[in-house]
């Protein structure tokens, strides 16, 4: 019998393994990439239907729906703050308003809600968006970066708490992406704080925060980073790599044209 016609058991096993490896080499090429989409609500009815409506123009009409969903301890504060925002007219400067008694109460309420349940977190974010819509925070020709920085700070605190956790929540997923978008835009406004000056620290802070939210320090992105990269790839890449926040401004101008720092005017 010839040398290589003898097939002992280990050889047969080895050949089988090789064939399986070849088949596996073909099979692995069929593995589809994970599709990134908003999480499903797993059959439960969401407490808030269409949560993005709360952040868009007209959202103030639905803010009252949240009253009964906010914890009893914070319900009154939330209702008061909501009504304060509804009463705002004439597009007051954000910097002035937020230093006043109603502004301070607003900040306290937003902070308390942000530490609460997911629905309360959504309520807090809706309040911040409403504030951004009804106050003036664009610096103008000779303005400074303080007002947009203050607004950016509110968004940043909210994102620090909820940014990553919201990615598996059907109710908070889209609002969180919107919050990052607005944060990038607001900080870009802070950076271009006037015709003749720029606030480099604002840009650097925004770059650092966005890099942290996206999990770009390591190569493995965070869930929020993956969602952002799927939704706003160019804006995120420019911000993280070059500190260029203009992509967020362009996206915001498309999605929330009224959030221009001048009450949509």
């Amino acid at each position: 019998m010839g040398l290589h016609s003898r097939m002992n058991r280990p050889s047969v096993i080895g050949m089988t393994m090789v064939v399986l490896a070849l088949l596996a080499a073909g099979w692995v090429r069929t593995i589809e990439p994970t599709i990134i989409s908003a999480p499903e609500s797993e059959g439960e009815a969401l407490p808030i239907l269409e949560p993005m409506q709360l952040l868009r123009v007209g959202g103030e009409e639905r803010l009252a729906e949240l009253d009964i969903l906010v914890d009893l301890n914070r319900r009154v504060a939330f209702a008061d703050t909501r009504l304060d925002l509804l009463d705002l007219d004439g597009c007051p400067p954000l910097g002035d308003w937020i230093r006043g008694p109603r502004g301070l109460a607003f900040e306290q309420t937003v902070a308390a809600l942000s530490r609460g349940s997911r629905t309360e977190a959504l309520a807090a974010l809706a309040l911040v968006f409403q504030l951004a819509r009804t106050t003036e925070w664009a610096p103008g020709v000779f303005g400074g970066a303080q007002a947009p920085e203050r607004l950016g700070g509110l968004l940043s605190v909210w994102l620090d708490r909820w940014g990553e956790d919201a990615m598996d929540d059907a109710q908070l997923y889209e609002p969180t992406l919107a919050a990052v978008l607005l944060y990038g835009h607001v900080m870009n406004v802070a950076f271009k704080s006037g015709m003749f000056e720029t606030s480099v620290v604002s840009r650097e802070r925004a770059q650092a925060n966005l890099t942290r939210y996206a999990g770009e320090q390591g190569e493995r992105r965070s869930a929020l980073g993956i969602a952002l990269n799927t939704r706003f790839p160019g804006a995120l890449a420019s911000a993280v790599t070059d500190g260029d926040l203009s992509g967020f401004t362009r996206e915001t101008e498309l999605i929330f044209p009224e959030l221009n720092g001048e009450c949509g005017q």
């Binding site: 393994m17 090789v18 399986l20 490896a21 070849l22 596996a24 080499a25 073909g26 692995v28 090429r29 069929t30 593995i31 589809e32 990439p33 994970t34 190569e219 493995r220 992105r221 869930a223 980073g225 993956i226 990269n229």
Partner: peptide, 21 residues
């Protein structure tokens, strides 16, 4: 060669999962 073929057919996504080339 078989193992090499498997490795060359894979790439790792940013979320840590693997997908094919």
């Amino acid at each position: 060669i078989g193992v090499g073929g498997i490795l060359l057919g894979l790439q790792r996504q940013a979320d840590g999962n693997f997908c094919g080339t």
